[in-house]
Design a protein around this nucleic acid. Structure first.
Lengths: 352, 352
DNA sequence: CTGTTAGCGCTTTCAA
DNA sequence: TTGAAAGCGCTAACAG
């Protein structure tokens, strides 16, 4: 396997000149450069980035550490990260933590050993241990999707509070008072903030504490189903459910059907995070949706600024608004309500 | 940032001993090892894998080059690859080619420069250029999901021919004779094989060439919609559509609705590749589904064998069976037909 | 614009 | 069971 020395010999120059020609750095005459490139081509030379990175202390690799890439929300994040990174010549390593802090720590250690230039993290729990480690190693890190309390760190996320508040308001406006919140794990900021946003809407409407029902589980279909079953049996007067993410919503839908109830006639259902338009035959769920791709672009852009050493001195906190999409599952006559951006009108086949 | 030299000094040993302690290789006394590990811990030592890889010629990194990670089929592949790789201490770099051969070549070059230990490739077109390059660099490569004609290379894929044949048979059994195939790009083996499988079913049923309609486009919702519109206007007697993947199917569904037609009453619709169960509120589409996760596991397992130098001498060709899932969109009374594994019976809400 | 020298941090090889 | 020497392939720093 040829090295720059082989190329240098063939082109009749010094190795460093080969380096300059290939990376197009520093001063080099066009003719020389061309000669080197030809020699490299003839030899089938493939630059060794390990060596290059070892010496230059830059790998042009980012790490993306997230909960589970098969959740479409994170899939879109991944796509946004890769697009933005590759535009600037960076590659992306990705890791699934499955919301386990141990896995997260393991992966953070691994990517630090690999000397990635920067890390994008969707933290699992409190998650500050991972941040500590990256800080010690002077590796820039941007948190996506979640907030880490008490730690000053760049973060880009959706407005969980606002989205949950709007969903709560929507249900309250429709006349619901017995509403169950099926939430993700307490301690994860998206869950906590959605709880708070929902509570805020209930407070405003003067719903007494005795009428409130909040359940805590995981962000999975299975957990959504279990929480819904519990909520239904626990509160006979239940008329609406707010699911804290798309998986929980689908699990809840399943549970409601199992109980022989109808959505929205018997129980209204609204959720957080939409499914990509291209994936759904019949858009049915009313949701507050976050701009996942844009979130990833912004986060990666910021991270690359940190890597380059440009970018603001202060830790940035970027919060993107959610968008309310009203469909059938919330029920009611919404046209009379304040104008809401309703997407996908055509569900005739689903109803007929 | 401390190196093995710093650790060695602190532990009172030679650098190589630190290396042995950390990697747990070669002979080393437990006491020595413990002493080294303590010293490393105290210094906050983080091994530099760039240096290690440069010297040892192993990176413990695989590359996954695929079309588009936001397609749930590939998302599942990605998850399977990462799970299998990380079990054996490997990390994964991933790249989206968007079915462009240029992008593919660019990424292959990049990952070769990064000296990944192995590559998993979903080839874009003919795709043999990429394979040539990896072969020159002695980097093991396993092709997933697709076949590369005329090249001897490991490959793991679903039975596109068989799946399309079964879907065709299903429609023919239901009495359909004017069936349009909405396919992906010619030259991509999954498209070609699905074409062939469908044709084989038509041949068997004696459907004359004049009654056959096959359109070629891309594996996207947009293209599916366009092809469906064209098929509908071109063939007034059309009664059924076979979509060559999930996106095409959803685009076709959209087009059919736009034309004021109903599925399955006016046009029956079947497709290739299911959407993950957890993502769909109302399972509606009849499909032939491939075991994506298992495919990824098998492919990664084989690749890791190649990396380790174990594994069979011959190029392997692993073809996993598809599974027919009959739902509403194909119409007809299928209960009378031979028993087919029907998943998701509960779609009451979608119909009511 | 081109070249020389040294060394990034680790592991291979060989020796003790 | 441990260590010394050398070098993986490249580029930073400096010199010309």
């Amino acid at each position: 396997m040829p090295t720059i020395y082989d190329v240098a010999r063939r082109a009749g120059v010094a190795p460093i000149t080969v380096s300059r020609a290939i990376n197009n750095t520093g001063y080099i005459r066009q003719a020389t450069r061309q000669r080197v490139l030809t020699a490299a081509e003839e030899l089938g030379y493939v630059p060794n980035r390990l060596a290059s990175s070892l010496r230059s202390r830059r790998t042009n690799v980012l790490a993306l550490v997230l909960a589970d890439i098969s959740n479409p929300f994170f899939t879109l994040i991944a796509r946004g990260v890769e697009d933005t990174a590759s535009d600037q010549g960076f590659m992306v390593i990705y890791c699934n933590t499955d919301e386990s802090e141990d896995e997260e720590q393991k992966y953070i250690d691994l990517v630090l050993q690999n000397r990635v230039d920067g890390i994008l993290l969707v933290p699992s729990g409190g998650g500050s241990a991972a941040i500590e480690a990256t800080r010690r190693n002077r590796t820039p890190l941007v948190v996506i999707d979640r907030r880490i309390p008490e730690v000053e760190v760049d973060s880009v996320r959706g407005d969980s509070f606002g989205g949950a508040y709007e969903l709560g308001r929507l249900l309250l406006n429709l006349g619901h008072r017995r509403i169950a919140l099926l939430n993700g794990p307490a301690g994860v900021s998206t869950a906590d903030d959605r709880q708070a946003g929902f509570n805020s809407a209930l407070d405003e409407a003067g719903v007494p504490a005795s009428q409130r029902l909040g359940l805590s589980g995981r962000f999975t279909t299975l957990s959504g189903r279990e929480m819904a079953l519990q909520a239904i049996s626990q509160e006979p007067h239940l008329t609406a459910i707010l699911a804290a993410n798309n998986f929980i919503a689908l699990g809840a839908l399943q549970a409601i059907q199992e109980c022989g109830l109808r959505v929205p006639e018997d129980i209204a259902l609204v959720g957080f995070d939409d499914l990509p338009e291209a994936l759904v035959a019949f858009p049915f769920l009313t949701v507050a949706t976050q701009p996942a791709y844009e979130m990833a672009q912004k986060a990666t852009g910021l991270l690359l600024e940190r890597v380059a050493g440009t970018g603001p001195a202060e830790a940035q906190e970027i919060i993107l608004p959610t968008r309310l999409i009203v469909r059938q599952s919330s029920g009611g006559r919404l046209d009379r309500d304040k104008p809401m951006n309703s997407v996908h009108g055509k569900t005739r086949m689903a109803r007929k």
